[in-house]
């Protein structure tokens, strides 16, 4: 059984985002790129499963849609422990185009479980996983908070609105993961970093999928009034304000 983890790369959350070209593009100067936190966690879980012989998971690959300058992100995933990588050589424009390109990678490979994160922390889309499943006409399970495999049988816990559900399903399928899938992301060890240099990255040219959505420009978030401080000797005042002025309790 093989697992494919789709990874996006995003600016580290603590990056002060700035825009260029009349606020139409992210100003990438000084941006620290990281593997999207959710994808790092899916990768961690996939590797845990591979490293346990009882699961039947043999190989973990990663896939990324991006140009050559995103390769350090892929190398990082390989250093953490992925066996190989697939990159489609094109700029990621919108979720539709990314999912269409990923679908080609899946169709040309042999993957049983395809994992995506719930969202990219840059454009906060939450779209690629579901789109990929529909392009492939695979079942999908979203909101996965636990994934285990026992001799090739998949067991999942997903969060639904109002509770949790335990389920199983046959492969292949697309899983969209969220919190709980792994506790701490696995970190690359020195040996992993050395090995990553020789692990294969399969680069393919895009099928030129069309984007459906375009970002016209970026704006700063809504301005916020200064915090109004309430006398710590009289916290009741807070409750009065929330009731009478903000009218929220």
């Amino acid at each position: 059984m093989n697992i494919l983890v789709c990874i996006s790369h995003v600016p580290d959350t603590t990056t002060k985002v700035k825009f260029s070209e009349n606020n139409t593009k992210l100003d990438t100067a000084g941006v620290q790129w990281v593997i999207n936190p959710w994808d790092e966690l899916s990768l961690t879980r996939a590797l845990e499963l591979r490293d346990d012989p009882a699961t039947g998971v043999k190989k973990v690959s990663v896939a990324h849609i991006g140009t050559a300058n995103t390769e350090p992100t892929i190398r990082k995933a390989l250093a953490i422990g992925a066996d190989d990588a697939y990159r489609v050589n094109t700029e990621a424009i919108d979720a539709y185009q990314v999912a269409a390109e990923l679908a080609e990678v899946v169709k040309n490979g042999a993957f049983d479980i395809i994992l995506c994160g719930i969202e990219s922390s840059d454009h906060n889309g939450s779209n690629v996983g579901g789109m990929l499943a529909e392009f492939l006409e695979y079942p999908s399970v979203s909101g996965i908070s636990h994934l285990s495999v026992e001799q090739g049988n998949v067991f999942i816990t997903r969060e639904i609105d109002g509770g949790k559900q335990k389920l199983n399903l046959p492969v292949p399928f697309v899983g969209v993961v969220q919190k709980g899938i792994a506790k701490e992301p696995r970190i690359a060890a020195m040996r992993g970093i050395m090995q990553a240099r020789t692990k294969p990255i399969n680069v393919s040219e895009p099928m030129a999928a069309e984007a459906k959505c375009s970002t016209l420009n970026f704006e700063p978030p809504e301005p916020k009034a200064d915090c109004r401080f309430i006398d710590p000797e009289n916290p009741k005042e807070l409750i009065t304000i929330l009731q009478n002025e903000a009218k929220v309790i």
Partner: peptide, 11 residues
Amino acid sequence: VFSGNAISRNE
């Protein structure tokens, strides 16, 4: 977008 640090206008 960017975890609430900006807003995008999309067509």
